[in-house]
Write a protein that binds this DNA or RNA. Structure first.
Lengths: 232, 232
DNA sequence: GCAAAAGTGTTGTAACTACACCCATGT
DNA sequence: ACATGGGTGTAGTTACAACACTTTTGC
């Protein structure tokens, strides 16, 4: 005797802003429960809607975002996670280049904003836990798949990549060795452009991720390894 | 306006039988849809039931199995995956030592049986896809976490471990190098016992997985790597 | 004594870590 | 000229891959 259950989706959207820090997209809830609290974007799955479609729809509605990279994270089924009763939520994690979008608050939300991962407000429901799981997954995955590039602009200086990895791996790395390793794979295309000078310092060369080259490598059985030891 | 949706769980239960092959537990369905077809064990989530609890309950009911190792795999939400209408399913994968259980067919099932992974019957719903995802996940995970031991008996000869990895990695491996690698970690405790002679050949020494030692290693920041190159 | 499975060491090579100084630009 | 961030090479060490013969048992 099947009993229908309320099903939602939630998205942990990561963005890496030019100021060089990892951010998460949060929306401020307009209604109860948790009215006024910050929460992950998400909402109920519609009848006959594919769950992945539901996430994309909610992201567009609530924040005006259409992600390139989106992947299922985990399904949270603790019967007490929502004060309204049993609500099971399928969580996704999403990587975007923030420069591609202007955030727009949707109808259900009073606001949509990027929050630095190191300084988050209290979150509604079990969203702090979901975010933690997402961050851990991202940190782990970035060492064996080149998904970090989904967070950077199309063209980026090497230092952005390095700083991103520093943040995700939670330790500093040796610049020379890291660069050598990535260059060896040949998955970075070096452009004949320099970044605009930002304040002072030498302008950096710009690179682009060579997706085609990466898939070649991958299909020929090559395993990427972007982990790097902590520098003392 | 939330609409309730039917929610099920499905389990991909892997077992490694003494005959030395990787098997999956399937049940033969007693009712429509797909009456008579083989399917993954599973069923509907009850009101206010935690989803993980639902899997354990179904496994016990349908096959008499109480697993040690159980982990969420992926949530399948294609609206056409069930002919009865929209049914979202949270899939788990489960590792058991088959020698610990006697299979018992439950009330909904006409039969419960181990099937060799290399020779499966046609499956109900999208269960073939689920099984494929589970197998891929298991194959990947076995290289960086020692979950393979959950499939072996408490005491096992080295050759069982080696054969298991051969099956999961889908290529043969160098026995000497593999053994060296695993022995280096010190996660195998060598017992002063020999396996009973099975037919002909030299009797093998028995080992036990040293869980405590593994957690020590892990907590001191050590990353296991049990991948091994294919032998030419 | 032969078939079948278990057990074991060495050597060359490739990959990694550690490490510090010069360069280009803005102010 | 100085502050800021960008860019680069080498040497010692370690870890891995490749490889084949001997041992113990049953029949």
């Amino acid at each position: 005797m099947p009993i229908p259950i309320l099903l939602t989706v939630d998205a942990v959207v990561f963005g890496y802003t030019p100021q060089r820090d990892l951010h998460v997209l949060l929306i401020q809830r307009g209604h109860d429960p948790f009215a006024g609290h910050w929460a992950l974007p998400g909402g109920f799955v519609l009848p006959n809607e594919h769950i992945e479609h539901a996430v994309r729809r909610e992201l567009k509605e609530e924040a005006g975002i259409e992600p390139d990279y989106l992947e299922q994270l985990y399904t949270f089924g603790n019967p007490n996670r929502d004060p309204r009763g049993q609500v099971v939520s399928v969580a996704y994690y999403v990587l975007v280049k923030p420069s591609k979008f202007t955030l727009t608050a949707g109808t259900d939300a009073t606001d949509a904003q990027w929050w630095p991962i190191a300084d988050l407000p209290p979150l509604a429901f079990d969203h702090a836990e979901i975010l933690q799981v997402a961050f851990n997954r991202l940190s782990a995955k970035v060492t064996y798949e080149p998904i970090g590039f989904e967070l950077l602009d199309e063209k980026f200086p090497f230092s952005h990549l390095e700083h991103l990895y520093t943040t995700l791996l939670r330790h500093s790395i040796d610049r020379r060795n890291f660069r050598k390793k990535i260059m060896q794979f040949g998955i970075l295309e070096s452009l004949n452009e320099k970044s605009a000078p930002s304040g002072s310092g030498r302008p950096a060369a710009l690179f682009r991720f060579n997706r085609a080259r990466y898939f070649e490598l991958k299909n020929s059985g090559f395993a990427l390894d972007l982990s790097t030891p902590a520098v003392k």
